[in-house]
């Protein structure tokens, strides 16, 4: 269930969910997105990386919420009532991404994705697969597999 297959199935056209963190626009393939929810408080996790805000209850399922901004090195998000949690399903795990706002669902041409600019920091290179240019803004495509919390605590 990698992006690759999803994207091939829909040939060149794919749908993306775009959202903002601070001033920057990002996107996820819609295939990964289960739903979008308003901010709810979470339960703090001990011994978790700082970008893991805590655990939330999604209709009986317990899933971690990640501060995507912090994960991307853009500073800690202070959750407010306008904040949004994108529930995504990645690598057989469900995870919530805390972002500032969801902007749109767009259909883009897979081929239009440009490589991440060379100026990238290590973190950008690891987490951003590429960018789509929309009018005068660019939308950064997140590499969902990299962005997931890495199993650094258990040797699994």
């Amino acid at each position: 269930m990698s992006d690759q297959t999803t994207e091939e199935q829909t040939e060149d056209r794919i749908e993306i969910v775009s959202f903002t963190i601070g001033e920057q626009a990002f996107c996820l393939n819609i295939g990964h997105v289960l739903e979008i929810r308003g901010w709810t408080s979470t339960t703090t996790l001990p011994h978790a990386p700082e970008y893991v805000v805590g655990m939330m209850n999604l209709r009986g399922a317990v899933l971690p919420v990640m501060d995507l901004s912090l994960r991307l090195g853009l500073g800690k998000t202070v959750p407010e009532s306008r904040s949004v949690i994108i529930i995504a399903h990645i690598d057989k795990k469900s995870v919530g991404f805390l972002v500032d706002a969801v902007s749109n669902i767009l259909t883009v041409n897979q081929a239009d994705m440009q490589p991440t600019p060379e100026v990238s920091s290590a973190r950008t290179a690891a987490f951003i697969r590429g960018v789509y240019t929309m009018d005068d803004t660019i939308v950064r495509a997140i590499d969902v597999h990299q962005i997931m919390p890495q199993d650094n605590l258990v040797a699994a």
Binding site: L45, A48, M55, M56, N57, A61, V62, P64, L153
Partner: peptide
Amino acid sequence: IKGLEQNYQSIPGIAAATILGNGKIAL
């Protein structure tokens, strides 16, 4: 009991999680 490994990973010192009557999660 709600396992943590399913969507996350195991956490030292924590066996699992549960959901309280108010919908909040308790470890």
